[in-house]
Design a protein around this nucleic acid. Sequence first.
DNA 1: AGTATTAGTGTCGTTTTCACACTAAGAAGC
DNA 2: GCTTCTTAGTGTGAAAACGACACTAATACT
Lengths: 229, 229
Amino acid sequence: MSFTYEYPRPALTVDCVVFGVDEGGLKILLIERDIEPFAGRWALPGGHVHIDEEIEDAARRELEEETGVDKLFLEQLYTFGAVDRDPRGRVVTVAYYALVRLADHRVRAATDARDAAWFAADALPPLAFDHAKIVEVARARLRGKVRYEPIGFELLPRKFTLSQLQRLYEIVLERPLDKRNFRKKILAMELLVELDEHETGVAHRAARLYRFDERRYRRLVRQGFNFEI
Amino acid sequence: MSFTYEYPRPALTVDCVVFGVDEGGLKILLIERDIEPFAGRWALPGGHVHIDEEIEDAARRELEEETGVDKLFLEQLYTFGAVDRDPRGRVVTVAYYALVRLADHRVRAATDARDAAWFAADALPPLAFDHAKIVEVARARLRGKVRYEPIGFELLPRKFTLSQLQRLYEIVLERPLDKRNFRKKILAMELLVELDEHETGVAHRAARLYRFDERRYRRLVRQGFNFEI
DNA sequence: AGTATTAGTGTCGTTTTCACACTAAGAAGC
DNA sequence: GCTTCTTAGTGTGAAAACGACACTAATACT
């Protein structure tokens, strides 16, 4: 079957920059390409948008297919369409970025035999196409966004300690934060619920666990509250 | 001539939300459609991306063709691709927003007989396709952006008074600002050059003119300076 | 019992923000 | 040329936010 148009049309794809955080810092999920061009290179998960499919749905589908990652924070990043970005012809890609709880998605082999792996964000291998550029834009967006919106929680386990949260912010913002000031500020926002639980299995005083209260967050958003860190 | 592909492809277009400001407030440039669908309705200027053309170049070309507006601040906004957004079939549009000095682009008839006109941003006529949605996203982005980056100058004449600048911010941010605090803050950024000129033709004390110093701005950007209003 | 490691907590000086009201200058009308 | 009208232009003080800073508490391990 084939499809014919009066004027030439670019192919439309999606690509996803999937962020995770662990003790080692910020991680990005990549898959190894098994076909030309760039066979054997690492690339962002992504693929073609079906003709009857919402663009964001295509991004979720590709993530699910290639990496088993589902139900995550996903937001449109930017559309990249440089004429020469794909040697096969004009391909325009709508890039998304996603945040996942790394613990829930540890090492996942891809379903279709392609290798998927997490890489440290500042030690990525050479990437296919213009994906290095896309990653740069995504990192800048994450930095900017985390500063003003509490999206960092998407990267942590559902129950977390304040120290984990602070480390997360330090990793994303790439600067150290003062412990006391950080705790004061984050607790003052009243977005966290103090749980009656503490972490376990640590060789030191166990820290209290908190969870993010999404309902309270949404209420505060409606009131125009400011979540700047 | 025709073009054939193995899989169906969406058409790719650009649409532009062009902002201007005058005494009456925030304005948006619209064109009247002369063909179906939505013939006779107002719509955002835009059109198809040529196969060998950068997406942003397409946006500039369409603006130039349809409205005679050129050399302006133009930034990608978001990509809209809802399956049913165009009754003719799948059309994905990369939306841009632009800022122009209204005085330089007063009432321009379009070159191809389509009517172009400025409308008050909060009294727009019914728009074609999902353009009302695109406008909403663009207004939110403008509000957010102007808060943290000095892009407002793109909307003013090259020489302007502090009162004009303040009115601009009040219009975009949709809230009143204190005169003294505003002046203190904006002058402290050292982005403005005080000129040895004053406005003329006003029935009251003439205000001093200023201009935006773009070189100084770029230098401060490199130093990570914060331009929050 | 001692050691090692991270959790958890308060104060104070500095800076930033915000509210607020009068005089200065020029044009227009008389 | 005096008055009136209108907008330009300017400083202070109180309150809030920010940022630097150091010790005790709890637990696991030896």
